[in-house]
Simulated scan of single mutants.
Amino acid sequence: MLEVTAIAKNFGGLKVLQDVSFTAGSGMVTALIGPNGAGKSTLVNLIAGVLRPTNGTVLLDGVDITGMSPVKVFEAGVARTFQVSGNVSELNVFECVALAAYRRARGYREANRLAREQLERFDLWQYRREAIGDIPSAMVRIVDFARGLVSQPKVLLLDEVMAGLTPHEVDIVIERVRECRAEGIAIVMIEHVMQAVNALADKAVVLNHGRIVTEGALAEVTAHPDVREAYLGAA
């Protein structure tokens, strides 16, 4: 269980997030949605330890991980993907995934085994020797997802992992996310591809101007008048 309570983030006089609270349960997909600039990626960066909050707390299974370094947050069980891939372009596909496996692996043999399992699961094994910098950006996003999953996290943060994918590729990732959910992983997903949000979200949390507008079932929140205005503007 991920619990975010009264999180705020200021950059100087700019208040990017204010009093944001929500929970993400194990075995559930929580979608963070809202217009560009709403504060979604900043919120994910706070959870992952890339940024320190101005106020508020982040708990993982009741343990306070607020303000921990990204390495410590990862070791605690929070994995993530990035809008701009966190993979190193000189590494090949296999190396990127195997490196992440060391959070759980007891040695390089087990890390290699776990990496192979994930690459086969995502139909990426044939590309294992390709440098990350030499494969299409859409494929990099899928490698990023496999890299996050191989660490066997408690919480997986997906930051627009579907962006740029074909409908077929989106379907593949949707199935992998469903498998994660079935394994009891708490998934927090920033996503603009509504095909994926509709297929996956157990709960949606809507952000606008750094605050939560509403949260609940996707059908309920998208019918909310403030959500419609945030996306479409006032009539």
Score class of each variant (00 low, 15 high):
Pro225Trp: 08
Asp171Thr: 10
Arg178Cys: 04
Gly210Ser: 00
Glu220Gln: 13
Met194Thr: 14
Val173Ile: 14
Ile187Val: 14
His224Trp: 11
Val173Lys: 05
Val193Cys: 09
Met189Ile: 00
Arg178Asp: 07
Asn208Glu: 01
Gly184Arg: 03
Val213Glu: 08
Asn208Gly: 03
His168Asn: 12
Val193Phe: 14
Val170Asp: 00
Leu165Gly: 02
Asn208His: 09
Leu200Tyr: 03
Ile212Asn: 04
Asp226Leu: 12
Met162Trp: 02
Val206Leu: 00
Thr222Phe: 14
Ile174Asp: 01
Val227Cys: 00
Ile172Cys: 13
Val205Asp: 00
Asn208Ile: 06
Asn198Leu: 15
Ala219Trp: 13
His192Arg: 09
His224Ser: 11
Ala217Val: 12
Val161Cys: 15
Val173Gln: 06
Ala201Arg: 06
Gly164Cys: 07
Val205Glu: 03
Asp202Leu: 03
Lys203Asn: 10
Ile174Met: 09
Ala201Asn: 01
Met162Ala: 06
Asp202Ala: 03
Glu175Ile: 12
Ala204Glu: 00
Ala204Tyr: 04
Val227Trp: 07
Val205Met: 04
Ala204Trp: 01
Glu175Val: 13
Val173Gly: 09
Ala201Trp: 08
Gly210Tyr: 01
Ala217Lys: 14
Val170His: 02
Gly164Ala: 00
Thr222Trp: 11
Gly184Asp: 05
Val173Pro: 03
